[in-house]
Design a protein around this nucleic acid. Structure first.
Lengths: 198, 198
DNA sequence: TGTACATCAGTGAACGCGCGTTCACTGATGTAC
DNA sequence: TGTACATCAGTGAACGCGCGTTCACTGATGTAC
């Protein structure tokens, strides 16, 4: 790699790091390009040598985040022996997202934004920017003996998870991670296992 | 009331109605004042005779919506005889919000926005712009015999509810109202009743 | 009932501001010979 | 190794646009006498 390329890549990384920090702190709309570049020690114009627009950088960061979450997930738990283990694996994973405080908020905001944008909405529903549905179905699916559709169990689990993210973002402090995990497990058991069925 | 006052009030109502429709369709940021006034058949400047800012109108609309939800709620179910009835009453109420499609989305967005604003966050946590927590605690509280904190049951129920709103807004269609209601009941039972406790 | 003046509702052009994006430019690095 | 030129990274002033807000103005309504 030439000296120029090295310099360019270095700059790109510095700008990206500043953007990750600022987007996380203040959100997409509230973070300006001038803030990103000046906080990294560059001029406003330098941004456009590296990305075509602010939105492009944001999407790239989101994709990178998801990729790293996914890698973390796939490296873990290869298979679970029963429902409790499957749910444990899922929530170990979800907790890493919960712990990435700033960014779980951004993901929620992004999800809400996608709500109004057809292309993004499809991307989310197909899992491109979403972590969940197929995972739940495949991990939990084989441990369902009640006949209840696994994708519904997955969707309910996601609902509980995302609802908890809202709760956390508001900082009410009534619930903690253990509470939701436990609740999610109870819910999955009630729906998935014959012995708990109504 | 004088002729002038009548005219003014009429205009105010027409602007408000246009705003409710447009905010609901497109959200707060994406709706401009020019759109509101021209869609109601007035000029841009007329807006400021009725409200100080776009934000003020938005908050007023939200407050009105919540007030009407609350009135509807309070008119209904005076008391429940057991947990199932209490949950039934709560979800009858929540379903009216779910059915107000556009606005349940707006409430979510508003909630997410409040996340970044201290004053709003406090207002939400104190229930000013939120529907839920004390209601659940008071309605469900007396039917908990497991010792599990009623406010946690309420918060988990809210999480499931708001997570479902996200799910609906994305239009995946995996879950319907009946699914969540049922799930919420299962969850509440598991947590509130001794016989279902682990 | 009429007149003079004040107040009000609504108009629409103009202002101001933030901010994303562009662009002509500079100095450093790379390339051809 | 040196020279001439091309290409690149980064600069920062300027542009453009949308949009919330202001303001001088008009015509209608209200008030005082």
């Amino acid at each position: 790699m030439s000296k120029q390329q090295e310099k360019s890549q270095q700059t790109r990384h510095e700008l990206e790091a500043a953007a990750i920090r600022l987007f996380g702190q203040k959100g997409f709309l509230e973070t300006s390009i001038a803030e990103i570049t000046s906080s990294a020690g560059y001029s406003k114009g330098s941004f456009y040598r590296h990305w075509e627009s602010k939105g492009e950088l944001f999407l790239q960061i989101i994709e990178d985040k998801l990729k790293s979450y996914r890698e973390q997930r796939d490296g873990q738990h290869p298979k679970a022996r029963d429902l409790d283990e499957a749910m444990g694996a899922i929530w170990d994973f979800l907790e890493t997202i919960i712990d990435d405080n700033d960014w779980s908020r951004i993901f929620l905001e992004f999800t809400m934004h996608a709500t109004r944008n057809k292309a993004l909405r499809q991307a989310l529903n197909q899992g491109a920017y979403r972590l969940s549905n197929e995972l739940f179905a495949s991990l939990v699916g084989e441990h369902v003996d009640s006949g209840y559709p696994p994708e519904k169990i997955g969707a309910l689990n996601t609902a509980l998870f995302e609802g908890f993210l809202i709760h956390s973002a508001l900082g009410t402090g009534v619930l903690n991670k253990t509470d939701v995990r436990r609740a999610a497990l109870l819910l999955a058991r009630s729906n998935a296992l014959k012995s708990n069925a109504e």
